[in-house]
């Protein structure tokens, strides 16, 4: 706090005119909501890794069944119950075709005189488990994606109409939802599946029939929140049509939350399909889904644990990936949002 003793040249003390605008120069480039969200998502390593893993799994589900030229439903009893054998890795002492037979550890490929390699082994009917695994993944993902899509379409439409138009429409629609929400999903799914012909369509319908309710409630709450805000009121005052308000103002604002919710709908659909197939009322043999494969594997778990291992791994990784991506998106799109 002492007086400045240093000698400063007088010209330093000339007055300058500051352009106050320049003081407000924006130092960072402005980012759109989605660019900003992407930047935040990119920092989330778990979500990025999950995305890569997910892309790989989807690719495998598409090309996997054709990789070794075997069909998933061709039975070859001579090649039944072979453990996994993968060229190259076999020398490491795993996936070398060794399994138990009559209490002894033997290379079952030698015993049964099989020269081919079954990467993930075969089941009791001699079907190639590698092909079946990816076929099953394909079916499970297909069911999950379609079910999620239906949930989104119905949920957004129902919640949107209910929230946007309000009044009596909202009253009636919400009374319906209040009753439906009381019915446990599991019960509805099981009952629906019982009365329909077993198959993919039945499972999709069963999963979707109450699946949209959660989405519709979230969408309605969001619409109610935004519809009262000034920017929508302003737009309405300026004579914007319903159509314009919905597409230009409301939908872009709820898009984030819809995407996040979809990310959690997909794994729950995967789970329900597998669950139904596991207890035996989902897909019927010989069709393969992750659920039926796990069910098959569970039955022979004691003797051929590898039959269970691969589908169990794939379904777990799929579920983890979707959940991590969902979490990552939630943090990126709305850091304050909790549920």
């Amino acid at each position: 706090m002492q007086l400045d003793k240093q000698q400063l040249p007088p010209e330093k003390f000339e007055r300058v005119v500051i352009d106050t605008d320049s003081a407000e120069r924006i130092s960072k480039p402005s980012l759109s909501f989605w660019q900003d969200a992407w930047l935040r998502l990119r920092k989330n390593k778990a979500a990025i890794v999950s995305m890569v893993v997910l892309v790989l799994l989807v690719l495998m589900a598409l090309v996997g069944p054709h990789l070794n030229g075997r069909s998933g439903d061709v039975q070859n009893l001579r090649h039944a119950n072979l453990p996994p054998k993968i060229p190259g890795i076999e020398k490491l002492g795993i996936f070398n075709g060794v399994g138990e037979l009559g209490g002894q550890k033997l290379d079952l490929y030698e015993v049964k005189k099989v020269d081919e390699y079954y990467w993930f082994g075969t089941d009791g009917l001699g079907r190639d488990l590698f092909t079946r695994l990816w076929e099953g993944t394909q079916i499970s993902l297909l069911i999950a994606f379609i079910a999620a899509l239906i949930d989104v379409v119905i949920g957004v439409a129902y919640g949107g109409i209910s929230g946007y138009f309000g009044g009596r429409t909202d009253d009636v629609m919400q009374r319906v939802v209040e009753i439906l929400i009381g019915i446990p999903t599991l019960i509805v799914v099981i009952l629906m599946i019982l009365i329909m012909e077993p198959g993919i369509t039945a499972i999709i319908i069963a999963i979707s029939i109450t699946g949209w309710i959660g989405m519709s409630r979230i969408v309605r709450a969001q619409i109610l929140k935004f519809k009262g805000q000034e920017f929508v009121l302003a737009s309405r005052t300026l004579g914007a049509s319903h159509n314009r308000i919905i597409t230009k103002h409301l939908l872009p604002n709820i898009l984030g939350i819809v995407i996040i919710n979809t990310m959690f709908t997909i794994p729950s659909a995967i789970f329900f399909e597998a669950f139904l197939s596991f207890i035996g009322i989902g897909l019927q043999p010989p069709a393969a889904s992750l659920g039926t494969l796990i069910n098959d594997g569970y039955k022979v778990m004691e003797f051929q644990p590898y039959v269970l291992l691969f589908p169990a791994l794939v379904i777990s990784i799929l579920m983890i990936a979707f959940n991590l991506i969902g979490d990552g998106l939630r943090d990126a799109l709305d850091p304050k949002m909790k549920d």
Binding site: M1, L3, D4, K12, F13, R15, V16, V17, I18, A23
Partner: peptide, 27 residues
């Protein structure tokens, strides 16, 4: 504050000012 001040001096943009004493209690 120089960037928002109409009293800015050249030196304001180069060097932070020290505390000048105005009175025993005022700096």
């Amino acid at each position: 504050f120089a960037l928002r001040s109409e009293y800015a001096l050249k030196i304001d943009l180069e060097q932070a000012p020290p505390m000048f004493q105005v009175s025993d209690t005022h700096y």
